[in-house]
């Protein structure tokens, strides 16, 4: 929560915001992408905290966003050598991992087991799933304070309960660099 660091005026003039602002707005408004983000969040609930190679992925993503930006050119060049070594390291790690049989996730194993091919009367992992709820009613909690939230953010779809929480949401979560 470093909202004191950058004033709104500074944010508005950021080239980065200008470049990607439109894209981000479009993305946030897309219901498919919102659904995807929700799924990703649910998946994350099953994660252990083992952050090893996650950093590499992030780095590359940002690079592609900043691609055309002149200001980042030199920095990128400087970073390039560093990244190469890091990538090489990752590859080396991968090679070692392959030798040691890298563990696959449960979902991969599940897919491989091909449980759908079994006859219908055999109970399987899939058939034991509880399935969707009978009533579609869903309570919404304020993403900021946790109270029941009647309002929805018009840009990103997050929930909040009051104007106070809305301000916090806008300052911290909702495209905070685009304000």
């Amino acid at each position: 929560m470093d909202d004191e660091l950058g004033t709104p005026a500074l944010r508005r003039s950021s080239t980065r915001a200008k470049k990607i602002g439109a894209k981000v707005s479009a993305v946030l408004a897309d219901p498919n992408i919102r659904a995807q983000a929700a799924l990703a969040r649910l998946d994350a609930l099953e994660n252990d905290n083992i952050a090893v190679e996650a950093i590499d992925v992030d780095d590359d993503d940002e690079a592609s966003l900043d691609d055309e930006e002149q200001g980042f050119r030199e920095k990128k060049a400087a970073k390039g050598t560093k990244r190469k070594t890091r990538r090489a390291k990752a590859q080396a790690m991968e090679r070692i991992g392959n030798n040691k049989k890298t563990p696959r996730s449960f979902l991969e194993l599940l897919q491989e087991a091909n449980l759908e091919s079994l006859p219908a009367h055999i109970p399987t992992y899939h058939k034991a799933a509880v399935g969707p709820p009978s009533s579609g009613a869903r309570r919404h909690f304020c993403t900021v304070c946790g109270y029941l939230a009647p309002y929805t953010c018009t840009r990103c779809g997050a929930r909040f309960c009051s104007s106070r929480c809305k301000v916090v949401h806008n300052d911290t979560r909702c495209q905070k660099f685009l304000q």
């Binding site: 649910l42 509880v130 399935g131 869903r138 919404h140």
Partner: peptide, 16 residues
């Protein structure tokens, strides 16, 4: 009890 609140498409424990 209400996984739906989390956005999961799953019934709650009682229904389960």
């Amino acid at each position: 009890f209400h996984p739906a609140d989390l956005g999961m498409n799953e019934a709650g424990l009682a229904e389960c």
